[in-house]
Amino acid sequence: MVTSVPILMDTRPSAPSTAPAAGKPTVRPPAVGASAVASPAALNLPAATTLIDIEQVDFFYGATQALADINLKIDDRKVTAFIGPSGCGKSTLLRCLNRMNDLIEGARVSRGTIRIRGVEIYQPDVDVIELRKRVGMVFQKSNPFPKSIYENITYGLRLQGRSDKSDLDAVVEKSLRGAALWDEVKDRLDTSGLGLSGGQQQRLCIARAIAVEPEVILMDEPCSALDPVATAKVEELIQTLRENYTIVIVTHNMQQAARCSDKTAFFYMGRLIEYADTRNIFTNPANPQTEAYVSGRFG
């Protein structure tokens, strides 16, 4: 089952020497500073490789077609934004990537393939549980469990049978730091996650997601329920996370897509209309529908 492609490694940004022991995916401490605020497009990064490869996907809810013939390649360690008006299928596609759609009755991918690092995730022998460990998700409405902050973060690890206290402590700190929440909550790790503010809750959910060390983080309109200040914090966090994770974010907010994504995909009526560098989408869209949408004429 070893599907690592040697070529991938060469093109990745190099890891700092602080990386922990080998054999586990690494989570580097966030590089606070330039990369967080600078526009990604402005950085001269090496050409990215494809991590998720979506080919000719059709998707149905019962008899209703939600996605038609989607072809999309999502780059490794980049932020990809899905934009489009309500009901265009962007969230549906996102939820296909960790098969959360399996939970919805009658929902199915009827055609096409989705490969993550070359592995077709809809083939029968794929274990959905393993898939979801590798592809984390943050939801529209922040959903911390009604447990302590500590328990929230360690939930996923305990599921995997990890219970060593010092190990868990380390992961909690690392994840909370990674989610830029550590300083705010380090003194009250045993208080309920429900006691945090909306923005903190959402960052807690992100911390919870990165604690299990996924490769991909799916974000389904993570800021739609947050106020502008909290939104800015989460966006800042996304900029930090992109160094270590591939992020796919669904958003209603075009400014958000413009601010924090490398590539943007525009969906309309279940079809992918345009997919390009974010800069191009917003400054020079090739498709008139895209232009109409990004300039605010509909949606």
């Binding site: 070893v2 060469d10 022991a21 080998a22 993550i116 794929v126 274990d127 393993e130 590798r134």
Partner: peptide, 20 residues
């Protein structure tokens, strides 16, 4: 470079774990 590459070796995207 080679050493850091080795530490970063991405685990196989093994999502077809055998269950009992």
């Amino acid at each position: 470079m080679s050493e850091s590459t080795a530490t970063r070796e991405p685990p196989a995207f093994a999502v077809s774990k055998k269950r009992l």
